[in-house]
Each structure stands twice: as structure tokens, then as C-alpha cells.
């Protein structure tokens, strides 16, 4: 018990010293001594733990950032595709408006169609409309630029168009002048048509060539192209005119079939 009393007295003395040594901005001397002894290693360990936590946070954030970048890249790709689709739709809309304007002079009904295939060697197109849409062989096909060709073959839901640039297709045409010259065009190459005309009516480079309308299938006044060259064939009494076709593949995928 004496030992306890001595220890308690020592504790009271130390406690009093601690309490009396306290200031508003400073801990007591015993607390300061304990802090000197213990706080530094505790702070070091705490710093280490915080570093580990920061590293773990960085690792976790890095993973989530990578996932976010991947998601953003996918969104970016989707937006790009959406932009392309939007551009296609705008182009289709402009083509339809052009078509409506071009068809304004034609007093017949038409079927809108989309080009789904192109064979340059055969000079043919494939359309997404067919017999079920009222399309028949021989129907003219026009774009906003002018006449593209005529229907050659018809399936239930598709059809094939023979282009005006094909040597196998002849179309009645006229060179627009005060006195028009008439003839039949036939294809030579994808960028050239030939028109043989008789008569003496003047024809010059740059003159417009339209469909003649002298047919029960192809209405008159549809643009065919523009004269690029006129060759006199004196021994035959004719002139051979080369034409740059108004229709160009790739400018639009929307066409109309005139019924």
C-alpha cells in the first residue's frame, strides 16, 4: 500500500506539472515529451498509409479512366457514323427535292427508289423497287440531274436499269436550239454519249441535249447532257455529236422511276 501511495503521489505531482505547464497554444511538458517520442513514427506510418491509399486510388482511377476513354471513343465513333448518316440523309433530301423539280414537267406518276448496286462494265444499276411497286421494263429512270436510263429487267422487289451510257440503249434526243436537231443517243463510255443528227440546224459545243419526247415511254424535256464536240460527216450528210452525260453515278443514290 505504501508503494501505491508513493506512486499515486508521484502521479499527482506529474499531473500537476503537466496541468500547470499547459498554455492556450501549447500542450503540457509531459504531453510534449510523449509526442516527441511517439508522434514522429506515428506520423511516418500515417504518411505511408496515405501514400498506399493514394496509390490504390490512382490505380482504381486509372482503370475507371481507361473505361471512360473507351466509352467516349465508342460514343465518338457512333457520333461519326451518325454524322455520316445525317449527311447521306441530307444528300437524299436534296436529291428528292431536285427530283421533284425535274419531274415537275412530267405529267406522270413516279416511284422513288434507291440505287443498291452498280456494274460499270455492263453500265447497269440495281434499284430497290420492282414489280410489286408497279415498275415495268422500259420505264425511264431519272435523277435530279436528268435521265439515267430505262428499266431493263424487273424482279418482285428489285429491278435493273440499263444506263444511257450503255451502247445497248438508244434514246430519242434533241439539241436545244431555236431549231432543234433530233437524233438517237447511244453510249460510248461512262462519260461520253454519241448523237448522230441529220439536217442543217446549227449545233455548238455547250448546247443542252434533252429527251425528244418522241416516244410513248420516255417523256420529253429530261436533261441528257451537254454537247462537247461536233464532227461533220460530209460523205454521209450527218453530224456526229459527242455529249457529256448529265447523269453521274455517285452524286446521288436516290432516283425515280416514271410509270
Amino acid at each position: 500500500m505504501i508503494g501505491l501511495a508513493v506512486l499515486a503521489a508521484a502521479a499527482i505531482l506529474l499531473g500537476s506539472w503537466e496541468t500547470s505547464g499547459r498554455r492556450a497554444d501549447r500542450a503540457g511538458p509531459l504531453t510534449l515529451a510523449a509526442q516527441t517520442l511517439v508522434q514522429a513514427p506515428a506520423d511516418s506510418m500515417l504518411g505511408g498509409l496515405r501514400s498506399i491509399r493514394l496509390s490504390l486510388d490512382g490505380w482504381r482511377d486509372g482503370r475507371s479512366l481507361a473505361e471512360r476513354v473507351q466509352r467516349l471513343e465508342q460514343e465518338n465513333m457512333s457520333l461519326r457514323l451518325y454524322g455520316q448518316e445525317l449527311e447521306n440523309l441530307r444528300s437524299d433530301l436534296a436529291a428528292r427535292e431536285g427530283l421533284e423539280k425535274a419531274l415537275g414537267t412530267v405529267a406522270r406518276s413516279s416511284v422513288p427508289a434507291v440505287i443498291t448496286g452498280f456494274r460499270p462494265i455492263e453500265s447497269t444499276l440495281t434499284l430497290n423497287v420492282g414489280e410489286q411497286d408497279g415498275v415495268k421494263p422500259g420505264d425511264p429512270v431519272v435523277t435530279r440531274d436528268g435521265l439515267a436510263g430505262v428499266i431493263d429487267w424487273v424482279g418482285p422487289r428489285t429491278s435493273q436499269v440499263i444506263l444511257i451510257t450503255s451502247p445497248e440503249l438508244q434514246v430519242g434526243a434533241k439539241v436545244v436550239r431555236d431549231a432543234a436537231s433530233f437524233g438517237l443517243t447511244r453510249g460510248l463510255r461512262l462519260d461520253t454519249l454519241l448523237l448522230e443528227i441529220t439536217g442543217t440546224a446549227p449545233v455548238d459545243v455547250g448546247d443542252s441535249v434533252l429527251t425528244s419526247g418522241l416516244s410513248d415511254r420516255i417523256p420529253g424535256g429530261l436533261p441528257i447532257g451537254e454537247v462537247t464536240r461536233v464532227v461533220e460527216q460530209a460523205n454521209m450528210g450527218t453530224r456526229l455529236v459527242t455529249i457529256f452525260p448529265a447523269f453521274r453515278i455517285g452524286r446521288s443514290r436516290v432516283v425515280a422511276v416514271i410509270r
Binding site: L4, A8, A11, I12, L14, G15, S16, E18, T19, G28
Partner: peptide
């Protein structure tokens, strides 16, 4: 402090 030190002792 005194109370804590005595208590712990």
C-alpha cells in the same frame, strides 16, 4: 492529468 495518471496507476 493528475486524475488520469492516478487512475491508470
Amino acid at each position: 492529468a493528475s486524475l488520469l495518471l492516478v487512475g491508470m496507476t
